[in-house]
Amino acid sequence: MAERQSPLEPELHVGSHGNFEHGVEILLTETRPGSIVQLAAWPGEEKKLIAAIRGVTGLALPDGAGGGLSDGVKSVFGFAPGKFTVTDEAEGLAAAFAKPVTPAIGTVTDLSHGRTAIRIAGPKAEWVLSKFFAIDFALPAFPVGAGRSTTHHDVFAQIQRTGTDQFDIYVFRSFARSFWEALCHASEEVGYEVQ
């Protein structure tokens, strides 16, 4: 596969920034998964699609809207009725789904080159994200593993909570740099480190 370049590169400055004299409270990273795949089930075929996700990734989706989980290498979460985002550190996930997700079950869309994955972690992650998105980031409302679809100024974002203090945000690649810059600005007041 062609080597991918980061859309963030001109604005990705490794090191500590902002008000970090008392320690950094936010870590920002681009996770660069090898595969980002969107799966959609035709109405009534959701259970078969969920079984296919389990077969390919070994991840058993919990029941309910926006449910998801991550094993640190592969992640999956629901972002709409019958629709799921699956990511893998390795490439080739779309090809792996092509067989089990038959045309009768649903569709496979490879977004590996179309989305940029940004991880925000640290004790102030909820605080900083609350400046962007009008959703509840508190742990009881947004449990670990769960996914949410939302928007920041018309920039569509899918967010998965991958830890108590950690969120993975998937944005359109073409919007990623401006979103990243905004995220850096919003993190300045608490001190942030880019890794």
Partner: peptide, 15 residues
């Protein structure tokens, strides 16, 4: 609009 969805697509009561 499309009607009911399977349990996997609906919000759990406790949510």
């Amino acid at each position: 609009v499309r009607g009911d969805h399977s349990s996997a697509a609906r919000r759990k009561a406790e949510d």
